[in-house]
Simulated assay, not measured.
Amino acid sequence: MHTISRRLAGAALAAALAVPAAVAATTSASAAPFCGITWGSSTKATSPSLLWTGRVTSARAGQHACFDRVVFDLNPGRGTLGYRVRYVSAVTSPGSGFPVPVTGGAKIQVTVNAPSTLSPSTTTFSGWRTFRQLKNIGSFEGYTDYGLGVRTRLPMRAFVVADADGGRRLVVDVAHAW
């Protein structure tokens, strides 16, 4: 009987020692960022006084291995292209402030500091890992707003690319996972 108790105690001790090692391995593996992405989900913005005189001419989206991307194309102009990209509880219409329904578990409001003559439109992304819907809400007093519906709140980044013809592109990437 005494030998069985010692064996059980030894087995329990071995199991207890193995658990922290397994937990440590899991914790360090899950701490590694998805695809090396370290963007976070906080607001990405420039100064609201940075304005571009060129107009938003289109919005297009693409899928990448680690993120979905939307690109806002602007024609040549003067100034500096500014933007504000942020998670919101509800996307709102510029000027009126009325809520605009956007499909997705989380919503991103994209404000491009440039005018647009594009008509309001909606693009739905079926089968995409992150994007659900993109709505061109409209332009008001030189600023253009879009609502981007995504699966859930995920890391994102935003940056501006200067084109050879003098135009600009605002790029917004949203990761597939944390």
Rank of each mutant, 00 (worst) to 15 (best):
T80P: 05
V88T: 06
V71F: 03
A59V: 13
N75K: 07
D68W: 01
G62V: 02
R60W: 07
V91N: 09
R86M: 00
R78L: 10
R69G: 00
Y87F: 14
V88K: 02
F72V: 08
S58L: 08
H64L: 09
R69M: 08
D73K: 11
S89N: 15
Y83Q: 03
T57H: 13
A65D: 12
Q63Y: 02
A61I: 06
V91I: 11
T57R: 15
L81Q: 10
S89L: 13
S58V: 09
C66P: 01
V70F: 00
R78G: 11
Y83L: 00
S89I: 04
A61V: 04
G62T: 07
A61N: 08
R84W: 00
G82Q: 04
V56F: 11
V71S: 11
R60P: 04
R78K: 14
A61K: 05
G77D: 10
Y87M: 05
A90T: 13
G54M: 13
S89F: 06
V70I: 08
A61D: 03
Y83T: 01
A65Y: 03
F72Q: 08
G77A: 09
R86S: 01
A61R: 07
R55N: 09
D73C: 09
R60S: 15
S89A: 15
T53H: 07
R69V: 08
A90Y: 08
T57N: 13
H64P: 01
R84F: 01
D73G: 13
A65T: 10
A61L: 03
V70R: 00
A90W: 10
G79S: 10
R69C: 03
V88M: 04
T80W: 07
G79I: 12
V70S: 01
S89Y: 11
